[in-house]
Design a protein around this nucleic acid. Structure first.
Lengths: 181, 181
DNA sequence: TAAGATTGATTATTCAATCTTG
DNA sequence: CAAGATTGAATAATCAATCTTA
C-alpha cells in the first residue's frame, strides 16, 4: 500500500476541473438517459448492461462481474436484471459447475433492442459530447480518464462492492485513515 | 436553430472516450459520495447544495435556479431541501417581492458543516481525481468539458427542467427530430 | 465459514397532478 | 392562463439480513 500522507489540497485549477467534470457528467448522463428513453424506451443503465453482455464471449456475464462493470451494488443489479429479464432482453442461467453463481445471458430480443437503439444513441454521443472535442482533446481525455477509472475501480474492488456487509473497520480501511494515532 | 442533419456516428476513438467518461464519472461519483458520507455524514448532493449557496450573494438561491445548478428536477430538489432543512443546514424564505418564489438560505450551521467537510472532500478530490492529471491534462480537460457542460445546460434549459409537464410535442422538439417525413 | 446472489424494509427519485400567486 | 413550487403515487436504489451452495 502506498502512503497517503503526502496528499494535499488540489490547486484551484484542479478544483475547477473537478467541478466541471462533476457538472458535465451529471448533466450529460441525465440528458443521454432521457434521449435514449424517448427514442428507444431503454434506460441508459439497461443499454449499458446490453453493451457489456454483447462484448463478452458468449454474451454472458456473472452477476457479480456485471455489477462491477456497470458500477452498481449487488442488490441494485439484482433489481435491474429483474426488470430487464421481465422485458425479455436477458435471461438468467445457472452454470453447471458452481451452482452459487447466476449468469446473465443476452437474448436475441436483447441483441435486437441494442442494435435498434444504437444509431440514435451514437448520434446523441456525437451531438452532446464528441462534437465538442478535437482529436488532441480526445487523446488527452482518454489517457487521463483511463488512469482515473482504473484507480477508482481498484479502490472499489479493494473495498468490496456495496452490499458486502461493510463493517466499520472495513470502511476505515477503505478510507485509508486506519491509524489510531 | 442549427441543423442536426450533418451529425454522424462518432469515430471509435470518440466512442471509447465517451465510455471512459461515463465509467469514470459513475465510479468517481459513487466513491466520492461514500467517502464524504463516511467522513462527514453529508451526501455529495447536500455538499453541492451548500457549495452553490456559499458562492452566491447573500448565501441564497431560488429553488428553480438551484435545481438548474445541481441538475435536479424541481420536485427532486424539493425533497432534497426538505431533508437538508430538516437537518438545519438551510432554511426556506419567501422574498417580499414575488410571493411565488422560495429562496433557500444557508444557515450558520450549514456553513459550518460545509467548512468541516471541505478538507476531507478536497483530499478525496486530490486522491481520486486530481492526482492523476498533469498541468497540461488539466488545461485540456477544463477547456473541453466547459464546452460540453455549456451545451448540455443550454439543452436542458431549452427543454425546460424535468417536472415541467413535458408534452409529446415538446419532447420531440427537444430531440430535434421534428419533421414528420 | 465464506462466496454468490436475493429479499424486506427503508429511503430517495421521478412523473403527473395540484396549489398558489402573478 | 403562466410561473414557481409542492404533493401523492409509483419507481428505483440502498442497507442489512437471509438463503443456498462450496
Amino acid at each position: 500500500l502506498h502512503s497517503e500522507r503526502s496528499l494535499s489540497s488540489p490547486s484551484p485549477e484542479r478544483l475547477a476541473a473537478w467541478r466541471l467534470f462533476l457538472e458535465s457528467a451529471t448533466a450529460l448522463i441525465d440528458v443521454m438517459d432521457r434521449e435514449l428513453q424517448d427514442a428507444s424506451s431503454l434506460p441508459l443503465r439497461w443499454y449499458d448492461v446490453l453493451v457489456h453482455l454483447e462484448e463478452t464471449e458468449g454474451g454472458r456475464l456473472r452477476m457479480g462481474d456485471l455489477a462491477n462493470e456497470i458500477v452498481s451494488s449487488k442488490s441494485g443489479l439484482t433489481r435491474v436484471i429483474d426488470r430487464v429479464e421481465q422485458a425479455g432482453l436477458v435471461r438468467r442461467e445457472r452454470p453447471t459447475g458452481d451452482r452459487r453463481v447466476v449468469e446473465v445471458v443476452l437474448t436475441p430480443a436483447g441483441l435486437e433492442a441494442l442494435h435498434a437503439a444504437r444509431p440514435g444513441h451514437r448520434h446523441d454521443i456525437e451531438r452532446y459530447f464528441a462534437r465538442h472535442l478535437d482529436d488532441d482533446e480526445v487523446r488527452v481525455l482518454t489517457q487521463a480518464l483511463r488512469k482515473v477509472r482504473d484507480e477508482v475501480r481498484h479502490i472499489r474492488a479493494a473495498n468490496g462492492l456495496p452490499d458486502g456487509t461493510r463493517t466499520a473497520a472495513r470502511r476505515a480501511a477503505g478510507r485509508g485513515s486506519g491509524a489510531a494515532g
